[in-house]
Design a protein around this nucleic acid. Structure first.
Lengths: 222, 222
DNA sequence: TACCACGACTCCTCAGACAAGTAGAGAGGC
DNA sequence: GCCTCTCTACTTGTCTGAGGAGTCGTGGTA
């Protein structure tokens, strides 16, 4: 699955600069070489270097002062969780989501309160009612899955799920638009069974349902 | 005395764009107008708009795809992940770790390379050799589990595991000091079995071993 | 010594041109 | 009718050249 390294030059340049900061070539507070000397060094144009610098400035690593130069303001921002998600390919994200959600389903089966169960069933009905519009359906689907994660009463799992949501949303919309087959009875049946297992307090069954449903999605998106 | 023009145009443009995102003019996942139409709107040149976009891209708010457009990827900086971890109670962290690690074990069984397997076995031996000192044992144990997650070849899962590590370490040290029973043969046998399942490419078995081992730890810590 | 004008250097901004990639419309084949 | 393929319009990516604006060290002057 050899991904071709098709990253914009500006991104590559930013990475190179960051690398040289990490190795200590330019220390904290120090001035970088001027754009006009840095550009040929990296083998790119001046504007490309500028965009790379802007990018790092947005992350708080660099700061530029007109007339003075560009300075290092931080050795490296702690790898932002958000950036990791964006860079990772979709399959990795789905695998992580499967891990989180299957565990959450099992915990939800143990811990769900009557109020949780009502919320899950309400979300399920809402999901069934939104079959027409693709985006509305994806959002309703997300709310259903979210209600299950919420029933697990584990803030870490909930936070992780919310972190995945934005990255997943667009991918799901694209996929459903492409296939045209969404909201069918088989799909909805799987969700009904998942809700059933949780209602029955069948943790293993809930995890199994969740895993198989998301596994199918992984296959469709890969 | 005029402290007005102090900020570069690109910074001002970035601020304006962020403003319009916050007000909901461009929703999450949506495409921004093209650079060529955005530039006159903001009253700046195209290069300046590009630098503003780069800046926001560095902060994770925007992402641009050549040929397609610029898209909103986040409404603003998300909540600090570390803070969530610190605030959450230990049981929640372990549950999340179980989710991550069981999935990683199953994937590792599928994807492990011979080199991965060597690393896992080396970590296992190292773990066996460090039974005397509590802290050394915990660290060696962590390295073993980390080698399995690495063999799953999923950057998201790896990043999550690393995120849990610091929070787990102290808790495990405390627990082992209290109980005094660590590094015994039964415990080590469980780890050997886990490595075996991965070597045999038995994904379900590996997930089961991982889950039961970590489940025991959860019971001990709770 | 204290002050200041100057110049070299730096980043900032713009404009134009072309390359590279994407996505949708439309033609063609089944 | 449906599928596929091609072609076109549009978008971002990159480079170059030009001039504007701010900073800082230097050297001359009082």
């Amino acid at each position: 699955m050899e991904q071709v390294k098709r990253a914009p030059l500006a991104d590559q340049a930013a990475e190179l600069i960051l690398e040289r900061i990490r190795t200590g070539e330019w220390e904290l507070g120090q001035k970088l070489p001027g754009e006009t000397t840095l550009a040929p060094q990296l083998g790119v144009g001046r504007s490309t270097v500028r965009e790379a610098i802007r990018q790092l400035a947005g992350r708080g690593v660099l700061a530029s002062r007109q007339g003075a130069g560009v300075f290092v303001t931080a050795l490296d921002a702690p790898e932002e969780w958000d950036a990791v998600l964006r860079r990772a390919d979709l399959v990795s994200v789905i695998e992580a989501r499967i891990a989180i959600e299957a565990e959450a389903a099992a915990l939800a089966a143990e811990r769900r309160t009557p109020s949780d169960l009502r919320a899950i069933r309400r979300a399920l009905d809402d999901r069934a009612a939104n079959r027409a519009d693709v985006e509305a359906h994806v959002d309703a689907d997300t709310r259903f899955h979210r209600s299950i994660v919420a029933a697990a009463h584990n803030p870490i799992l909930a936070e992780l799920f919310d972190g995945f949501t934005p990255r997943m949303r667009q991918a799901m919309v694209d996929m459903l638009r492409l296939r045209g087959e969404f909201g069918d009875d088989a799909d909805h049946g799987a969700h009904e069974r998942l809700a059933e297992r949780i209602a029955e307090r069948d943790g293993d069954g809930a995890a199994r349902e969740s895993r198989s449903h998301l596994g199918a999605m992984k296959a469709a998106l890969a």
